[in-house]
Amino acid sequence: MKTRRTSLTVVLAALCLFVGGARAELVIIGHHGGPDTITPQQVKDIYLNRSSRLPDGQRVVAFQLPAGNSMRDEFNELITERNDAWLKSFWSRQVLTGKGHPPREVSSANSMKSVVSSTLGSIGYLDSTLVDDSVKVLLTPEP
């Protein structure tokens, strides 16, 4: 009986894990040659033009998904805490005053993965279910 309860618990836990793993969750990804972890604040600094370097000192190349992508909305909510209209206005001012350029926009989650895996110093974000070995997960932001 005891064993049975334990096994039930294990099954439930595994189920939970499985369900949790399969849920589309935002993850911050980077190139394999970059740092192993990054804090939400460091990601925010990079995406709001406050920092041009990764925590390990490398010059960063940031990428973002196109407007309307649900992961971009999630990223804005959890990391930048700014909406698209604010960001567009902010970046227009940065660009037109020579202070910097916005993260490069990639067309899809697939191209996000391929460009992050092939660009040294890259950082990007993706739906956790689409992550594979080609990129490194640096952070899973907590809602």
Binding site: S92, R104, V106, N110, S111, K113, S114, S118, T119, S134
Partner: peptide
């Protein structure tokens, strides 16, 4: 292959984008 193609395309774009950028208002 699709992935490689994507990344090649991206690299091409990024090389192009890096040197000269045009903006306006």
């Amino acid at each position: 292959m699709q992935q490689q193609l994507n990344s090649m395309q991206q690299q091409l774009n990024s090389v192009k984008n890096d040197r000269v950028r045009f903006n306006g208002f």
